[in-house]
Every structure is written in C-alpha cells, then in structure tokens.
C-alpha cells in the first residue's frame, strides 16, 4: 500500500508543481494518474522512490515513511518504467534486465538466466537478449523496460507514460500485455499517462489531475465515465464525444466497457 499524505512540491524558482496531494494506492491494484502535461504526475510518481523529495507532506509504503529508507535500496526494491525505456545503450538487453539483481549482488550468470525467462514473460524472443537496445524497435524497448522493472520481483511498479512514445498499434499490444501480466502478478502499480483511454483501460482506479496535482475526480473508470464531477473532467474524458457512448459487454467473465466504435475502453471492477 502506498499513501500520499498532503504531498506538496515546489521546485526551486518555479510555481507550485503539486499542492497538498493525498491518495491511498491499495496493494495489488493499478491506480492511474491521468492529466495533461505539466499537471504534476511525474513529480508525484517520483516522490515514491525518492527521485523527488516533497517540499512538505510524506509518502508511506506499507506504513513506513520512505524518508526512513535509504534511497538507493528503496529504488532497487521498486520497479520503474519510463517513457523512453531508459535502457542503458551500452549494455545488452539481458544485462539491462539483470541490472538490479546484479546491483543487489546476484551472480551475473544466474541473473542473466532469470532475465532470459523474463524476456519471454513480456512477450519477446529470448534470442534478442544478446542485442543492444539501439537495435530494438521502440515497442520492444518498452517491453524490455517492463522486464527490467520486474527483474528484482518488486511489490511496486511505477510507470511513467511507459507507452507514450510508441505507435498506437504497438501501444495497444503493450497495454494488453500489461493487463495480462498484472492478472498473473498482482503488483501494486502506479501508472502515469496523459491518455484517458489508456487510463480507463488499465486502471482499477483512475485519478484525474488538474494543474498543480489537484485531484479533479477519482474513482473507477465506470464511475468517472458515468458521472464526471465537473466540466473539466467531462471535457477531459471526452464524455460528450459520440464514440464515448458506452455499453457494457462481458468477456471471459469480466465486464468490459466498449465505446461507440467497438473499442474496449475499460474493465469494470467486479
């Protein structure tokens, strides 16, 4: 469980990036922070692994203030996926995935074997393990990024617009892959995006942010779509758009919200 307690952040010489943000992210759930660029999503995400220190307020993981933890050890215990993969260009794909286990002292050979298994897990051919990130497509790089985040088997995954830089078709595949993985792994995921469709598809809970990290509305995708809190949210989720006329279908025993064009936009909580 991750708790944000009235977290505020003001960068030196800047106006307030995040003001008094409070949120509880329950364990084994996916919470998506969605908002336009500059609304403070990344800042919030980065307070969890102490890449950013809040100006005031605290962040707790399982009731422990993250400030009590050594930042390096803390970061090794949390998976982190970024928009640009953030893979080390000079290390092979396998070594990239094995980074954190090796940093933690796992013997290289064992870490590589595990990395190879992870490649399969994220839907990649283990043969590409010997390549360098520069030789992979953007979508493949993002999958490797996810594999690296999973390598140390963390309880928490932080994902900062991980699929923002790949083409729409690839993004779709990656999203499905993540849903499949999460169904198996039950991590606690904080996912940041500016894409409301992605938020509804992936989030058990969605938090719509306005400028300054102010929560405009939070709830399940169905709740937000069904009853946008105000014009800002209505505008943001595009509830007025014709293709947003939702209906519910059932697939594999799960209720899926499908829009006017037949695209699934979210899974309704059971």
């Amino acid at each position: 469980m991750i708790e944000f307690e009235t977290v505020s952040k003001t960068y030196p010489g800047q106006s307030v990036a995040v003001a008094d943000f409070s949120l509880v992210v329950p364990s084994h759930r996916t919470v998506v922070l969605v908002g336009s660029s500059g609304s403070g999503k990344s800042t919030l995400l980065r307070t969890v692994n102490r890449m950013v220190e809040p100006t005031s307020g605290r962040v707790l993981i399982d009731d422990e203030d993250v400030r009590e933890r050594d930042p390096v050890a803390l970061r090794r215990s949390i998976g982190y996926v970024l928009q640009h993969g953030g893979l080390l260009p000079h290390r092979s794909v396998l070594d990239n995935i094995a980074t954190v286990p090796v940093l933690k002292g796992t013997p290289k050979r064992r870490a590589r074997t595990a990395a190879s298994e992870l490649l399969e897990r994220v839907g990649l051919d283990p043969k590409i393990g010997r390549r360098y990130p520069g030789q992979l497509s953007g979508g493949q790089q993002q999958r490797v990024g996810v594999a690296r985040a999973l390598a140390a088997d963390p309880n928490i995954l932080l994902m900062d617009e991980p699929f923002g830089a790949v083409d729409p078709i690839m993004r779709r595949e990656l999203q499905e892959e993540l849903l499949r993985l999460q169904a198996e792994l039950h991590k606690t995921i904080v996912f940041v995006t500016h894409d409301i469709d992605e938020a509804f598809l992936l989030g058990d809970e969605v938090v719509v942010l306005r400028e300054g990290g102010v929560i405009a509305q939070r709830g399940t995708p169905a709740e937000i779509l069904g009853a946008p809190a105000d014009d800002f949210v209505r505008d943001f989720v595009g509830a007025d758009r014709a293709e947003r006329e939702l209906h519910i279908t059932t697939v594999d025993g799960r209720s899926i919200a499908v829009d006017g064009t037949g695209r699934p936009v979210g899974v309704l909580a059971p």
């Binding site: 890449m51 390096v72 803390l74 953030g86 893979l87 080390l88 980074t99 940093l103």
Partner: peptide
C-alpha cells in the same frame, strides 16, 4: 543522455555505480 542517467538512478544505481 540525461534520461539514461536518470533512469539508472531510478532503478537504484548508487552515485558511484
């Protein structure tokens, strides 16, 4: 690339590593 450096910090490289 500062993004690579930052990603390295984010996954838990110490300043030395």
């Amino acid at each position: 690339d500062p993004r690579v450096r930052e990603a390295a910090v984010a996954v838990g490289h110490s300043p030395r590593s």
